[in-house]
């Protein structure tokens, strides 16, 4: 006990290390590694992910192309990095939007029960009744191959869970003595959110966000894999898998790259999420 309570000044990293269990730390490291890969490779001045070189197709990893080339002679290092960047970027963007919308609407609905709450609840139930991938698919059919429809579709699927969680937690807290006490003392909405709601919501919302990011990444690559997501020549993990699949005997390392990248990304987010919120 003594050694635990006697804490000197802590660096933020050390504080994080103490707070997160080992598995979540591993997930975080995986994701940071992938981000460095995705955003770092173009900075190092690698090859153009779209430049074809039909004289050097399906080359094994070597000095010129560290991860080899695909069937059109494009640098796999540049393409995998671009695909990772795209997946992570889309995941971050849609999760951020979904969390913002879910949080705002959830707190608004849970704060005061009434017709607004019922209306939002009904809307959430409607979205939930549709399979998530189907919704994304429908939107993708309207404007095929567009990054923004994918983003819109995934955000629309993800916000519902955040909303439902936030609403129920808010409802419970708003009826609690701690909130009543603060209101009697004259505190306003911002204070109630900052001191009472957000600390209770944060860990659960963060966990949901990490799961949501994994869902988003899988959704994008699934759509790419069945050729209704993003269009070639975009470097996208699902699309790359489909393209490289016919050459798995000649160039197994090529197919392995998008598969491994996808696996590590989803694993990273699931490890980071930890336990599912109750």
């Amino acid at each position: 006990m003594k050694t635990l309570t006697r804490q000197g000044p802590m660096t933020p990293l050390l504080a994080l290390r103490r707070r997160l269990p080992a598995s979540r730390m591993l997930g975080l490291c995986l994701l940071v590694g992938l981000m460095l890969f995705g955003w770092g490779v173009p900075l190092l001045g690698g090859a153009d992910p779209y430049a074809q070189d039909l004289m050097h197709t399906l080359e094994a990893p070597g000095a010129l192309h560290p991860l080899g080339t695909d069937h059109l002679g494009r640098s796999l290092l540049a393409r995998t990095a671009e695909a990772v960047r795209l997946s992570l970027g889309l995941a971050f963007l849609s999760v951020a939007s979904a969390v913002t919308i879910g949080l705002v609407l959830g707190v608004a609905a849970g704060w005061r029960r009434g017709w607004g709450d019922r209306l939002l609840g009904a809307l959430a139930d409607c979205v939930l009744a549709l399979p998530g991938l189907l919704l994304v698919l429908m939107l993708a059919a309207i404007a095929p191959g567009s990054f923004w429809t994918l983003y819109l579709g995934i955000s629309l699927v993800l916000w519902v869970e955040v909303f439902r969680l936030v609403r129920s937690v808010t409802q419970g807290l708003m009826a609690s003595p701690q909130v009543q006490a603060s209101r009697l003392l004259g505190f306003g909405r911002v204070y109630l959110f900052r001191r009472h709601l957000w600390p209770a919501l944060r860990p659960q919302v963060m966990t949901l966000a990490a799961f949501g990011a994994a869902t988003a990444i899988l959704a994008v690559s699934s759509l790419g894999f069945v050729s209704i997501g993003l269009r070639p020549p975009t470097a996208e993990l699902g699309l790359m898998m489909t393209e490289l699949f016919p050459y798995y005997q000649e160039a197994p390392w090529a197919l392995a790259q998008p598969v491994l990248a996808l696996f590590l990304m989803v694993l990273g987010f699931i490890l980071l999420a930890g336990e599912e919120p109750k």
């Binding site: 003595p177 006490a181 603060s182 001191r195 600390p199 209770a200």
Partner: peptide
């Protein structure tokens, strides 16, 4: 309040 711990935000 009846239950003292319930009357405070527990995180601060």
């Amino acid at each position: 309040y009846q239950d003292p711990p319930a009357a405070f935000a527990p995180y601060w």
